[in-house]
Every structure is written in C-alpha cells, then in structure tokens.
C-alpha cells in the first residue's frame, strides 16, 4: 500500500493560558479518511488540541499542517505569519461542530446552511444548486421538513444535526467534533452519533473529542488518550481500551466499566 501524505500533521504543539500550560508537545499524524477519537478527563487539553487544528486557538510553538498547508506560518523558518484571509480559506475546508451547537438564531435552518457558502464563495455560486445541496444534506440528517424552522424551536439533538449539516455544506475535507453530545439530553445522544457514524463510514476524516466510549469502540480507527497536555496512549480502539497501559487511563476507563454494571 502506498503511504499517502497525512491529512493533518501536528508537530510538537505547545499552548498555554498564562502560566498554565495546556498542551505540552503534541505530535501526531492523521491520515485521510481516518477517524480519531480523543479521550481524556476535563483539563487534559483535548478541546484545546481540537481548537488548534483549525486555528481557533493560537498556539505558541509547533505547527499544524492541514492538507499540506501550514496554519500559522508561511514558511518552515517561522518568519512570516499567515494572513487571516488564508487562515479563513483553510477553515472553510475544515468543518467544526461545537458542544453548544452555535446555530445562528436569527436565521432559519436553511439560511444557517446557506450563509457560509454564499458569503465565502461569493456571487459566483449557483444559488439553486446550493439550495438543492443544502436540502439534500438536511434530509441526510433527517431534518428536511424543518428547513424553514427557527433553530430555537428545535430540540438539542435536532439543532446539533443541523450544525453538522451546516459544517458539511462547505464540503470540508476534515470534520472536527468538540464534545458534540455533552449538552444533550441522554435520549437525544443516539440520533447525533448515528449521523456521525454514517459520516465516518462515508470516508470523512474526523477528529472527535467525546466521552461516548461506545462510539470510540465502534467507529474510531484510532484512539488518543490525553493526559495533562500530552498524548498518554494511542492506538486502535480495542487494543487501547481493553488493555490500557498507564494508570491514568485505567482510572479513566474504570468509570465507564463501573457504569456497565449499574
């Protein structure tokens, strides 16, 4: 098998908030079509790591290279910072879904989907085609009949599925998921995970920060366990989840094991 250039390269990523260092040298490659689930207790830096991948969080040292593009600096010598315009261009090809959905409440569901393509790609875009494509995406997340609804009238699970469709309408090469089921009522988690599993099956490159251990086990190609800003363990889900090596990961997983016997 020919080894392809990785979709995301992360080299020695460092980030701190004031004195508190959150990321302390993360290095990893994510291949095209790979689904990586990032686990870790709160404060381990997993969300910050995810936010660095599309430069929502600026980092101090290291570099993220997405599909061959360096995010922060133009060149390897780190002399010229990239312009906000170029960063925005890269962000357009990286979809992100947030814990709190962050739909635009003043727009309808369909307008939420169509805003970014219209304003990023400008007047050259075919509006009719865009509308059809948006409706297709809405039906793929099972919400085509809600196209004219206001986001605030939808349930959390529905809002999150709209948010996924909104990210997909930009035809991203990568999707980032930041604890997307954490703000949902338990009975609504399933519908969102189903959409994500389908996306993974269709070959999307995904980085998923989550506490849904079953999703990790069933859908992930690789699991990264983060502990105090470092990658503590990494590997295929069955290997890593069933035979955790570090004590921290064992303690972390114990919680889930106990829950099984409730």
């Amino acid at each position: 098998m020919i080894k392809k250039e990785p979709m995301i390269q992360v080299c020695d990523l460092h980030k701190s908030f004031g004195d508190h260092s959150v990321l302390r040298g993360i290095t990893t490659d994510i291949a095209q079509g790979e689904v990586v689930v990032v686990l870790g207790s709160s404060g381990s830096g997993k969300t910050t790591f995810l936010r660095c991948l599309n430069f929502l969080e600026e980092y101090e040292r290291g570099e993220v290279i997405v599909d061959g593009n360096r995010m922060w600096y133009e060149d390897e010598a780190c002399t010229t910072k990239r312009s906000i315009k170029k960063i925005a261009e890269d962000r357009a090809s990286i979809g992100m879904v947030f814990q709190n959905f962050n739909l635009f409440p003043h727009l309808t569901v369909l307008e939420n989907l169509m805003l970014a393509p219209l304003k990023v790609k400008g007047s050259s875009i075919d509006k009719v085609k865009l509308k059809d494509y948006s409706m297709d995406l809405l039906s793929s997340v099972g919400l085509e009949e809600k196209w004219n609804a206001q986001p605030g009238t939808l349930s959390g699970g529905q809002q999150q599925r709209v948010a996924i469709a909104r990210a997909l309408v930009m035809k991203p090469k990568i999707m980032l998921f930041d604890e997307v089921t954490s703000a949902l009522d338990p009975e609504l988690v399933g519908e969102v995970l189903t959409v994500m599993a389908k996306l993974a099956k269709d070959g999307m490159t995904m980085v998923v920060v989550t506490h849904e251990i079953h999703f990790a086990l069933d859908v992930a190609d690789r699991i990264i366990f983060m502990d105090s800003g470092c990658v503590a363990e990494e590997g295929p889900p069955r290997e890593v989840l069933l035979k955790p090596k570090t004590e921290r990961f064992q303690t972390f997983l114990k919680r889930f094991a106990e829950m099984q016997y409730l």
Binding site: N100, K119, R166
Partner: peptide, 19 residues
Amino acid sequence: QQREAGWALGLLPGKVMRY
C-alpha cells in the same frame, strides 16, 4: 461562540460581524 461558529465556517471577521 457565535463568532467562533462563523470563523470556523471560513468567514472573515468583517463578514462575521456583518452577517
């Protein structure tokens, strides 16, 4: 978060403000 949602979609800060 509203701003970040806009940035993450690839909108420039001026357009995030405007739309």
